[in-house]
């Protein structure tokens, strides 16, 4: 088993038998964002799960996605819980709706993923820049030979829908 990866005071553990995450992170380390595609119904899903939540089929393959999406919701953490995040505060956590499979298979469902909103140099984005509706793309934060975290950064594409951030 690869050594746990130390990141901001946390031990990130991906054992060899982690059939959900191990290959996901290997792809991420090669700077590819992948999700699982069901072999039966073709729907994409994240996070990686063993069976398809729509048709229960077990067959799947990795499918690379564009890594582009829209901020669906967010939070600005001012009081860090994990000691390793204190120096980052205030930092933004974003819930990103990816462009692939929006509103499918039902209007309320989408491929959504959590990450931090960072500048292209991987430092935290200014909190005044964080808003629902703004467009983002994936960037990768390399942590070890076998692991990179998918993160997000703002793009200059026009926003999707109403742009809104918490006043104040």
């Amino acid at each position: 088993m690869p050594q746990p990866v130390q990141y901001r005071g946390m031990s990130l553990i991906i054992p060899d038998n982690d059939t959900e995450w191990k290959e996901f992170y290997a792809h991420a380390r090669a700077h590819r964002l992948v999700v699982r595609k069901c072999a039966a119904c073709g729907l994409l899903r994240y996070p990686p799960t063993h069976a398809c939540p729509w048709c229960m089929a077990l067959g799947w393959s990795w499918r690379e996605v564009s890594g582009r999406g829209t901020i669906y919701s967010y939070e600005i953490v001012h009081h860090a819980i994990q000691p390793g995040f204190r120096e980052l505060t205030p930092y933004a956590v974003v819930l990103v709706e990816l462009d692939e499979q929006r509103g499918q298979p039902t209007p309320d469902e989408s491929l959504r993923i959590i990450g931090n909103l960072l500048r292209p140099d991987l430092t935290p984005e200014a909190d005044a820049e964080v808003a629902i509706g703004r467009r983002v793309r994936v960037v990768f934060q390399d942590l070890a030979d076998h692991l990179a975290l998918p993160q997000f950064t703002l793009t200059d594409e026009p926003p999707q829908g109403r742009v809104w951030r918490l006043p104040g």
Partner: peptide, 27 residues
């Protein structure tokens, strides 16, 4: 330690109840 499904949120500094719920409240 962070493993399994926790990997989808915790490495991004999203661990406490407040951090887990805040995007719902904001939306």
């Amino acid at each position: 330690p962070v493993r399994g499904l926790d990997l989808a949120q915790v490495p991004f500094g999203m661990r406490s109840a407040g951090q887990n719920f805040a995007p719902t409240f904001l939306r």
